[in-house]
Nucleic acid binder design. Structure first.
Lengths: 172, 172
DNA sequence: TAGAACGTTCAGCATTGACTGAAACTTCTG
DNA sequence: CAGAAGTTTCAGTCAATGCTGAACGTTCTA
C-alpha cells in the first residue's frame, strides 16, 4: 500500500469513526474501495491493515450487515472474499438517510411528552419534526434521481471509462 | 421534568452521541427544545440535567459554536440565557449536510492516491465521489425549498398546531 | 473597595469500547 | 480419518474521553 493509499484508508477510518462506526470499519471499507484486486480475503485485508484476524471478522460482519460490503465465496475455496462494489453505495447512502428518520421519530416522542403544553411552547419541537419529516421524504428522492440520471446518461462526466454499469438495473 | 421529558432528553443525548457529539450536548439541546421558559440560565440547565457547571459551560460553547443554540444576555443581568429557537435548526441541518461534502472531499483524495491505476480499478471510488458530489449539491437545495415553502404557506401566528409540512409537490 | 454571583478552566476519575491474540469451531484436502 | 487451512468467539488490555468538582478569573452590587 502506498503512502497516499494509506492516508486515504486512515482518514476513512477517522471519518466513519466520527459518525458512529469503528475506525476499523472505515479502514476496511476504504481499503475495499481502492484495493486491487477488487475482492480480497480476510487474511489479505488483515495483512494490508496490520490488524488482527479477530478485528477483521467482527468488522466484516458489521459492514456486511449494513450492506456496505459484500461477501462472496468460490467453489472449492473455503475462503471468503470481501468487496465493495458500486452497488453497496446505495446501502451506505440509505444508512446515512436513516439518520433523518431517527430524528423525526425522536421528535415525535418529544412532542408527545409535552402534549399538554400550550401551542407556543411546542413550536420548537414541532419545527424539528416537520423539517426532518420533509428531509426524510425528499433526500431518498434526490438519491433516486441521481441514480436514474446516471443510468440514463452514461459517461457524461470526465474519465468515463468503465461507467456503463447502470445504477438502476443492477446486475448480479 | 416529567418522565416523558426526561426520556426524550436522554434519548437525544444518546442520538447525538452516536453521531459524534457528546451525550451532554444532546441532553442540553434536547432540553432547550422542550423547556419552559424557552430561555434558561446555565444554573437552571445544570439543575435540570443533574450536571456540573463545568460540563454545561463546555457544552454550551460547543453547541453555540456550531450554531445549534443561541446565547443571549439581558441588561443589568450578568447571567447568560440559552435557547434553541427554530432558526437554529438551519445550522443543525447545515451541519448534517456537511457530512456529504466531507465524504466527497475524502473520495477526491482517495482518487488522487490511485490516479495511476487503470480506469476499471478506479470505478468504485469514482462512483463514490460522483454520488456524494451530487447529494452535496442537491440536499441544501431541498432544505431551502422546505424553508421557503414553510415561510410562504404557514402563518407563524396561526397557532402552533400548523403541522402542514409543505412538501406537497415533487414526489409522484 | 469588599463581597457576591456567575462563568471558565483543568486535573483527575471512571467509563467505555476498540483491538489483540489465543482457543474453539468448521470446512476442505490427502 | 487425520491434518491443514480458514473463520469466529471471547476474555483481557489499553487508550480515548466525557464528566465532576474545585480553584481561578471576571463582572456587577452595596
Amino acid at each position: 500500500m502506498t503512502d497516499g493509499e494509506s492516508r486515504f484508508v486512515e482518514e476513512m477510518g477517522q471519518m466513519l469513526a466520527s459518525y458512529g462506526m469503528t475506525p476499523m470499519a472505515g479502514r476496511m471499507w476504504g481499503w475495499l474501495l481502492i484495493c486491487e484486486p477488487e475482492e480480497q480475503t480476510a487474511a489479505e485485508i488483515a495483512d494490508a491493515l496490520h490488524a488482527s484476524r479477530g478485528a477483521i471478522s467482527g468488522t466484516a460482519r458489521l459492514l456486511a450487515t449494513s450492506g456496505m460490503i459484500r461477501r462472496s465465496t468460490r467453489r472449492g475455496d473455503r475462503r471468503e472474499y470481501f468487496s465493495a462494489p458500486p452497488e453497496t453505495l446505495d446501502s451506505f447512502l440509505a444508512n446515512a438517510g436513516r439518520m433523518y428518520s431517527q430524528f423525526r421519530a425522536l421528535s415525535e416522542r418529544g412532542l408527545e411528552a409535552i402534549a399538554d403544553r400550550p401551542p407556543e411552547s411546542k413550536r420548537r419541537i414541532e419545527e424539528l419534526r416537520d423539517v426532518f419529516a420533509f428531509v426524510e421524504r425528499e433526500v431518498p428522492a434526490v438519491i433516486d434521481r441521481f441514480l436514474r440520471e446516471r443510468a440514463g446518461a452514461a459517461g457524461r462526466e470526465a474519465g468515463g471509462a468503465g461507467k456503463e454499469a447502470g445504477a438502476a438495473g443492477r446486475k448480479e
